[in-house]
Amino acid sequence: MSNPQIRDLSPADVRGMVQRDEIVLIDVREPGEFAAERIHGALNFPLSTFDPKALPTGGREAVVLQCGSGKRSAMAIERCRAAGLPVDSHLGGGIQAWVAAGLPTVRYDAATGAVVDRS
């Protein structure tokens, strides 16, 4: 994203932060997208019903947003700012960048109905 006020974090950075319990990763994609494939530990707060005041802010972990490509998470950051919340970071490139980097996800296999841990 070209907005200098939004911090683009790399997939490797986000993974390290999740592993060190430094962040709460919020996925703003819709429930069907989240169910189809998600990042381990991400919480789903869909943009269509996004309420910044419902986010788990104020704890020791920072909130980092994530979507499919980075567009919706940037929109959610703007909503957080409008609500006066200190949320300024997202996964640059979204889950697409995460998958392209070969990082693990949890996926639903529609053919078998199984949940697949893609490590």
Rank of each mutant, 00 (worst) to 15 (best):
A111Q: 15
G94I: 08
G94H: 05
E61W: 04
L65M: 10
E78K: 15
A83I: 13
M75E: 06
V14Y: 01
M17W: 13
N44M: 13
P11W: 00
V87F: 02
G32C: 01
F45V: 11
M75N: 14
G113S: 08
R38K: 09
G113N: 11
E30V: 07
C67H: 12
D8A: 14
P4T: 02
L43M: 14
E78G: 13
S2W: 00
M1C: 12
D27C: 12
F45W: 01
M17E: 07
G41D: 03
Y108I: 01
G16I: 00
T112K: 05
R29C: 01
D51Y: 01
G84I: 07
E30M: 08
Q96N: 10
V115L: 12
I6K: 03
K71R: 13
A100L: 05
A54N: 03
Q96F: 02
T105S: 07
G92W: 09
V106D: 13
M1D: 12
A62S: 14
G16M: 01
S2M: 11
P46I: 10
V116Y: 06
V64I: 06
V116A: 11
R15N: 03
R7C: 00
R60A: 07
T57D: 02
W98V: 03
R15P: 00
P56E: 09
V99W: 01
A82S: 15
S73W: 02
V14N: 10
V115T: 15
E22R: 14
G68Q: 15
A35G: 10
D27N: 07
L47K: 01
C67Y: 09
D21R: 14
D13K: 11
A82F: 00
R79Q: 14
R29P: 04
M17G: 04
G41I: 10
G102P: 07
A42G: 09
A101G: 03
K53G: 10
A101H: 03
W98H: 10
R107C: 06
S48L: 12
R118Y: 08
E30T: 07
A110I: 08
S119N: 09
I77V: 15
G32K: 10
V115Y: 11
A76K: 12
R118K: 13
V28G: 07
D13C: 06
I23C: 06
V87I: 07
C67F: 06
R38G: 01
V87M: 06
Q19D: 15
W98A: 07
Q66T: 14
R20C: 00
R38Y: 08
Y108Q: 10
V99L: 02
R79G: 00
E61G: 04
G41Q: 09
S10H: 03
P104F: 11
D8T: 05
V99C: 04
A110D: 00
R7Y: 01
L55M: 11
G68D: 04
V24F: 06
P56A: 08
R107N: 10
P46F: 02
V64L: 07
R81M: 02
A110P: 04
G68V: 04
E30Q: 12
V18R: 14
L103F: 06
D117C: 03
L103Y: 02
G94K: 02
E30Y: 08
V116L: 14
R7M: 01
V14F: 01
R60Q: 07
R60G: 09
V115E: 15
E37T: 08
S10L: 04
R20M: 00
T105C: 09
C80Q: 14
F45L: 12
S48A: 15
T49R: 14
V115N: 11
L85I: 08
R29G: 01
L43N: 04
D88C: 06
A35V: 05
L103N: 10
